[in-house]
């Protein structure tokens, strides 16, 4: 725990809480700036379906009271903040009796698993490829071969997802096209279920990893090459250290630092971008749920998911922030 001082941890925790508060406040304010309100929208939808609903005005008033939309704004805000703190997100508007928190918590593990596995794999593979591309001692044929692994970077990942489904699920029939696990399996710690989860996960993970690792590889390659000119690299060579040690402890070790910062910055985009992947693979995660929420104009569901995305991203950033001073001892000294 090199530079992990209490002040640093406290400051990062403060930033974490501030981010969440700001995010929660914004998702409270934005829907209220829009014309109309969700209850009226829902009742009008019901009206469109059923043709005519008796006492619609009373229904709207009753539901407003039920959802706490009748009080003054600050009362709503306080109630909202209290609910968010306890992760009580109320009822879903589109599938009424189910609660938003229940829906989210059944979807959350899938997204967390999918995104963490694919982000970590993409980060590791991309940085490994980039480091080898930039290191002059790597045989020329490997360095010539490596860039071909990055050609998929220019393809949007949902396009690659469709391609992968067509190739591996439809043509070759090696892997299942959609879902997170096979039908008729009971979720739990049993091998058939785990095996099925892995099989279902390969294509979505692959489509994210293959399309995003080029970003890491190019950044890493640039860092490694810049690093070559550093005085400590020359001194390391003068010391007669083994090339593998110079590469890992002096080259990669120093080049990875900005990459970790970039990872923290890109986390928000990763969480948002997963929506399309989950949609294509009908993966029962948060992205898929968010898609359903948007299609059904389910405000409480969208609000809950966006809040969870903010919470998740902020948590991941916090973890990386706490990891950085361990990687780079200089960080906690910077104001």
């Amino acid at each position: 725990m090199a530079g992990l001082t209490p002040q640093y941890v406290l400051r990062r925790l403060g930033m974490f809480l501030l981010t969440i508060w700001l995010g929660a406040t914004i998702i409270f304010i934005i829907p209220r700036l829009a014309p109309g309100d969700p209850v009226a929208a829902m009742v009008s939808r019901l009206t469109a379906q059923a043709g005519y609903i008796e006492n619609s005005a009373e229904i709207i008033a009753a539901w407003r009271e039920r959802f706490g939309l009748d009080g003054p704004l600050w009362v709503q805000y306080l109630a909202y903040m209290r609910n968010m703190l306890t992760l009580d997100m109320g009822y879903s508007l589109s599938s009424f009796p189910s609660r938003v928190d229940e829906m989210i918590f059944s979807a959350l593990p899938w997204t967390v698993g999918l995104l963490s596995v694919s982000t970590i794999l993409s980060f590791l593979a991309g940085n490994a490829i980039g480091a080898l591309m930039g290191w002059p001692r790597v045989p020329r044929w490997i360095r010539a071969l490596l860039p071909t692994s990055l050609t998929f970077t220019s393809i949007p990942f949902f396009m690659l997802g469709i391609l992968l489904v067509y190739l591996f699920a439809y043509e070759l029939r090696w892997l299942p096209p959609t879902g997170a696990y096979g039908r008729g399996l009971t979720p739990g710690w049993n091998w058939p279920f785990i095996k099925s989860v892995i099989e279902h996960g390969i294509l979505p993970v692959l489509s994210i990893v293959v399309t995003s690792m080029g970003f890491w590889a190019l950044g890493m390659r640039g860092m490694i090459i810049t690093n070559q000119g550093e005085d400590y690299m020359i001194l390391a060579e003068a010391k007669g250290l083994r090339p593998s040690r110079i590469f890992l402890r002096y080259g990669v070790r120093n080049s990875i630092l900005p990459q970790v910062t970039a990872l923290a910055l890109s986390l928000g985009g990763i969480a948002g971008g997963s929506t399309l992947v989950e949609y294509i693979f009908a993966y029962p995660g948060m992205g898929y749920l968010l898609y359903q929420g948007i299609v059904n104009t389910d405000y409480t569901l969208i609000q809950g998911i966006v809040f969870m995305l903010i919470l998740g991203t902020a948590t991941a950033v916090l973890i990386l922030d706490l990891l950085l001073p361990v990687l780079d001892p200089r960080i906690s000294y910077e104001r």
């Binding site: 005085d231 400590y232 020359i234 001194l235 402890r249 120093n254 630092l257 780079d328 001892p329 200089r330």
Partner: peptide
């Protein structure tokens, strides 16, 4: 010597 030592070791 300013830059000759590995900053993370």
């Amino acid at each position: 010597a300013m830059n000759s030592l590995n900053p993370v070791m």
